[in-house]
Structure formats: C-alpha cells, structure tokens
Write a protein that binds this DNA or RNA. Structure first.
Length: 686
DNA sequence: GTTCTAGAAC
DNA sequence: GTTCTAGAAC
C-alpha cells in the first residue's frame, strides 16, 4: 500500500493567472517566460484574442480549455483584479491542472505611465483616460487568496521581484511542480497604493478613490457566503465517479470485485469518447483502490480516463478539485436514503430533490440493475458540485444480515456484479450521449430518407405547411421555414414521440403526455408537460377535440406543483402556454414565479412568462370549451419593456430587473390572485 | 430554443 | 476598461 497520490502522478498543466492593472507588465512577463521555457505555454491575452482585437472573458476561457486539452500550460493575460473575474478561471483546475496567481503589484504611477505611453502610441486613449481606467480598476482590486482555489500565489512589487518570478517560471520544466502556498506578500492590508492620490492630482481631474477601500480587502466580507458555481457541464469532460459496489456492507470479495471493475471499465472506455471513469473511496488505505489501480496499470489502461481517487464522493469538486458530472450511488433495493455509507451521504448531500427525482423514476431496484436520475438544477449537489445525474446501482449481497444474500455463491455474485457495472456504465453513456445529442441532432423532417416513419411524418408535415399558409405564414423567426422546422425546434417533438428512448430525462409519461425538466429552466422549478398528439404543435393547433388532453396536461401540471410545494411550500407557480411557441409539440410550462435562474437571460425570456404572451392553462381551457379555440397574443409583446411581475415597475436591463425581483415586496397582481391562476400554498406570504 | 459576438452604453 | 443587448447562425 503506497502513499503516493491516487491520481496517477504524471505531469500537471498549470494555469497561471496574471493579476495586475494595464501597464503592470503582464504581457511582458509571459513573453519573457515563453521565450526560453521548456514547458509548452499558451498565452491567452484578452486584449488580442479576437483576431488581434480585444475579446471577452468567455473567449479566454474557451481558448484556455483548448490549450489545456492540447497539453499546454496557460497564462491568463488579463487584469483579473477581482475575485469574481478570477473565479471561472480557477475552475479550470482539477486533478491534472494546477492554478497559480502571479500578482504584479507595481506602483500605480508606473502602471499608468506605461499605459499612457502605450495607448498614446496606438492613438486611442489620451493619457487622462488611460489613467482613469487604471484608477477605476485599482479601486475595486481584491488581492487573490489561496481560499479562492489557487494552489500557489506569488506577489511581485518591483522589477527585481518580477525578474525572479520570470526565472522561476522559465525553469519550470514539463514534469516539474512548484511548492504550493502564498509567497512574497508584503503588506497584507492593502490600502490603496501610496502615491496614487498624488499622482492623480497631476494627471487628471478624475475624482480620487474614496478612502473606503476596505470592502475589497476585509477577508470576512468576501469569504462567508460563496456559492461555488461550477462551469457548465459541457466545458467539463464528462466524468462518472463511482464507489466500489458491494464490497463494503455487502461483503463481496475484494479481489474478485477489483477484477470485475477493471474489466468492465476497460470494455467501456472505447465507447465513452473522451469521458472518464473514476473509482472513488473515502479512505487513503483503501484496499479496493490499490487493487484496482494495480490491475489497471498492469493492463495499460489509460490512466487519464480511468483512475482512482480518494475523497468524499459528494464533495469531489469542492474538496477534491475533481470535476465530475455524474456520480453513482451504491443504493439499496428500496432506493431509500439511510443505511450509512455512500448511500446515506449522497441522499443527504442531494436533499429532497434526489428523493423526489428518484421516486419519479423507480420505486425499487433489482441486484445488477441501475437507474439514472437527473438532478434538478436547484439541487445542492448540482449547484455546488456540478453533478447533473445520480445513478443508483444495486450490487449482489454476500452479507447474511442483508436482504437477498447469495450465501457465497460467487458464480452468481460475479455475474450480478458484472451486470451492475455494465448497467452503471451504460447509464452514464446515455447521459453523455444525451448531452451531445439533444441540441444538435437533426432528426430530418425535410426529405424522406428512409423508413415508413418518415413518410408517415411527411404527410402530417405537408398538412402543417398548408395550415401555415392558410394562417398567413407568420414565420420569419427562423424556427419554421417554408421547408419545415429547424432541427433545434424538434427536440420536444422527438421526446414526446419516443419517451422510451429518453428515459434518462423523462420524469413521467402516459399515453397522452410526457413530463420533463425544461433543459434550460427559467426558474427554480420549471418542468414541461408535453402533449403526445402528433399534429398539435402549439396553441394555434388546439381545438375542441383536444379538451381532454388539455385537462390531463393541467392535472399533471398541478400534481407536479403539489410535489414541488411539498418540498418547499414557499414556491408559487403558474401553469400556461406560450402564445407562439419556439419549439414544436404543444407543451405546458409549469414554472415557479421566482424566476431565479441563470438561464433567464433576455427580454424575450422574461416577457414570454410574465406578459399576456403567457396564456394561463385555465384560460386556454375555458376558451377552447366556449369558442373552440384558444386566443393567442402577438409576439410583439415580447419586445415590450421589462416590468416586475409583482409590482409592474419597469427596469432598464435584465440584471437590474433580476435584482429587483429578488426582493420586490409587492403582492402579485389582482387578476392572478382572484382567479387562482397563481398556485400558492395558503401559508406562503401572499 | 441557445450560443456567439459586435457594438452601444456606461 | 466592463456590461449588456440585439441579431445572426445554428
């Protein structure tokens, strides 16, 4: 049992964030190092990333990810002066990537004069403006701290310091590492730099920084509540972390189990693209980890794609720095929490979201089987650790005190354990495919390329063209062309037609409806009830013949509201349809009224849920019953101003609106309250 | 429907 | 310099 790190101890890429205002020498530093370093470096400079022009943070991130994939270390050459700006780059860190900060604390005077010279040269900014920029940036400066996630921070205050730092990084060969920790920090309480005020009096009339520079530097203000937001799953290599199945409480033989783990993993890796499998155990001395590690290396399995890791499976990102998007649970047959070990830990960390989501998929599990449970984006495990799915697995039991004991029958036991890992990896594979497929898979509705399924659809599809023309062809938005629907607009249709092919995202289904989580929820809870009727694509296609369907959709929607409110009675919901849906297949939105979501990004999003464009399910039903069709609002209202859904006040931008609605104390408008279109629990504060 | 990005606004 | 939106591409 060796004590080396469990992640194969090979070379680690570095991400070095340069931290300093314009003119502090960031680019010069990078260039000096890259001139003679033996390590492959990529300098990612926001000022020129866009074909020589300035670009965005997102572009820098993207390029950093690409460079890391190519095995290069990267310099992030942008100001990175506050914690927020740095945070997303820190998330690039992981088992194979270390993140450092190099802080260039040169005097403001030096920075400004260099900056003035440079911008003068380019003829853009005159001196006063460059100075103002530097000043503004220094005002909100927050020095980096180790607890942001850096493994190493180095401070430089003058040219000599910089020179030493250049040497340090130049000498850093591809296989070398630098000691972790914070180095060279001179003056932990960083009041504004001496000299900056005086200098400013000379340079420009920009008002000097108020002396309340403390907000950036008192650690407590910044450290106490930080929600770790994990970068979108797409940026992360799909990774499954799984515990050893059956070897703890179920007392399965370790040697046999490790053989099975290594063999099934080896068989699956080729199917998984670049995705990774990680066997996790809580303790350092774990026998199963060392067995698996030894056997995997004997078989020459790629240790970048299959490796072992010591840590708490519910805290792999926050504590272990390992990005995983899927974790496996060593479940019990009832799929209930409790029992200690991994099962208890995962249920505890995921909260009631996991129980509800599990319940929606299955009530029990047989030995050898696995069930994939998508985690809602509001689940703590999803938010804090980036876990999008939990896969419950049940293995064979050799413990006489537990149900279904196999009495040492290892012929059966091995077969079941093999089956368990196979089901687990297959479940993981389905999440990987689903991620890459949903947005882009083009399930052609254009030409008959094969099979009767298509020709069948073509008939219907001609029908829709006819009705489009009849209704005046209101379709410049790009979702419907004269040829048909764009591929992206078909996703719901495909799921509604074949829910059995999308088991990992379907929450519930019947002959007439399918329920899924909105892939980009616009509120804390946001599910869609899809109609399975082939030719009903939106409200405009609804008629008296669909009344039963609309009623079932309404009832199913209500049931999910109940379920969500059982978990959190403060949630308030509305049920309704978009007047003109963007995606094919009639779908009812069940959406909580907090609109607390990073996916709510623009005016159209907001207005589509909070104006008359959103047609309450009950109103639609009444209209169809009384007049045979539903009224729809014009898309023009989507371009209207941004108004609070409670007090109706107007706001200039989405971010300002969002910060208003977080705290707006007004009750909801009368028409919603009176007609009970708004679904709130009696005790919730409305 | 989302993503990406140029350019306006600050 | 950053933030934010609108519009094109998918």
């Amino acid at each position: 049992m060796e004590m080396e790190t469990e992640v194969s101890a090979e070379k680690k890429e570095k991400v070095v964030l340069l931290v300093g205002p314009p003119g502090s020498g960031k680019s010069t530093f990078c260039e000096s190092v890259m001139k003679s370093s033996h390590r492959p470096w990529s300098r990612i400079c926001q000022d020129i990333i866009n074909n020589g022009k300035a670009g965005s943070k997102a572009q820098c991130l993207k390029m950093a990810i690409e460079s890391l994939k190519e095995g290069k270390s990267v310099f992030i050459d942008r100001c990175n002066l506050d914690r927020e700006q740095r945070s997303e780059f820190i998330k690039l860190g992981g088992p194979h990537v270390e993140v450092h900060a190099l802080v260039l604390e040169l005097s403001a005077q030096v920075c400004i004069s260099r900056s003035v010279k440079r911008s003068g040269h380019e003829g853009n900014l005159q001196g006063g403006r460059a100075a103002a920029v530097v000043n503004k940036m220094l005002r909100s400066k927050e020095l980096p701290k180790l607890n942001e996630g850096f493994s190493r921070i180095l401070f430089c205050y003058n040219d000599a310091d910089v020179e030493t730092a250049v040497k340090t990084y130049t000498m850093l060969g591809p296989m070398d590492t630098l000691p972790s920790g914070s180095f060279g920090l001179k003056n932990p309480d960083t009041k504004s730099q001496p000299g900056i005020m005086n200098f400013f009096k000379k340079v420009s009339a920009v008002p000097a920084a108020s002396s309340s520079s403390n907000e950036a530097t008192t650690p407590k203000a910044n450290d106490k509540i930080e929600i770790v937001r994990v970068s979108p799953a797409k940026l992360v290599v799909p990774t499954l972390a799984f515990p050893s199945i059956s070897t703890a409480d179920f007392q399965f033989d370790l040697d046999k189990a490790s053989d099975i783990i290594v063999e099934t993993a080896e068989a699956f890796l080729p199917k998984l693209g670049s995705a990774r499998l990680v066997l996790v155990d809580l303790s350092h001395g774990s026998k199963i980890l060392s067995l698996v590690k030894a056997k995997a290396s004997r078989k020459n399995i790629d240790s970048g794609r299959f490796f072992t890791f010591v840590g708490d499976i519910t805290k792999l990102h926050s504590q272990g720095g390992l990005h995983c998007n899927v974790i496996a649970n060593a479940a019990n047959w009832r799929l209930k929490s409790g029992g200690g070990g991994v099962n208890a830990a995962i249920f505890k960390a995921a909260g009631s979201d996991l129980e509800a989501a599990t319940r929606a998929r299955a009530n029990t599990l047989l030995p050898g089987k696995a069930v994939v449970v998508p985690l809602p984006s509001t689940c703590p495990l999803h938010n804090a650790e980036g876990i999008t799915h939990v896969i419950h697995v049940l293995g064979p039991n050799m413990n006489p005190n537990r149900p279904d004991c196999l009495n040492n029958d290892y012929t059966k036991g091995c077969k079941i354990l093999r089956e368990a890992y196979t089901s687990l990896f297959e479940g993981f594979l389905s999440t990987v495919q689903d991620q890459s497929k949903l947005p882009k898979r083009n399930n052609q509705a254009t030409v008959s390329d094969s099979g009767e399924e298509d020709s069948e659809r073509n008939k219907k599809y001609k029908g829709t063209i006819a009705s489009n023309i009849k209704s005046g062809s209101v379709d410049d938005s790009g979702k419907k062309t004269s040829k048909g629907w764009s591929s992206w607009a078909l996703a719901l249709h495909i799921i509604a037609m074949h829910p059995e092919k999308h088991l990992n995202i379907v929450l519930e289904s019947s002959d007439h409806i399918v329920v899924i989580n909105d892939q980009y929820p616009k509120a804390r809870k946001h599910v869609l009830v899809l109609a399975r009727e082939e030719s009903v694509d939106g409200l405009e296609d609804v008629g008296r013949e669909n009344i039963q369907l609309l009623e079932e959709m309404q009832n199913v929607g209500l049931k999910w509201v109940q379920r969500f409110q059982d978990e959190d009675p403060s949630l308030i919901f509305r049920l309704g349809y978009h007047s003109v849906p963007s995606m094919r297949q009639l779908h009812l939105h069940v959406i909580s009224q907090d609109f607390e979501s990073d996916h709510l990004k623009n005016k159209k999003h907001w207005n589509s849920f909070t104006t008359s464009f959103f047609r309450d399910s009950l109103d639609v039903l009444e209209e169809v019953k009384s007049q045979g069709k539903a009224n729809v609002e014009s898309e023009a209202v989507l371009r209207g101003e941004l108004r609070c859904n409670r007090c109706r006040s107007a706001h200039p931008t989405i971010p300002r609106l969002k910060s208003h609605i977080r705290t707006c104390p007004s009750p909801f408008p009368h028409h919603l309250l009176q007609t009970s279109r708004l679904l709130a629990r009696p005790d919730s504060s409305n």
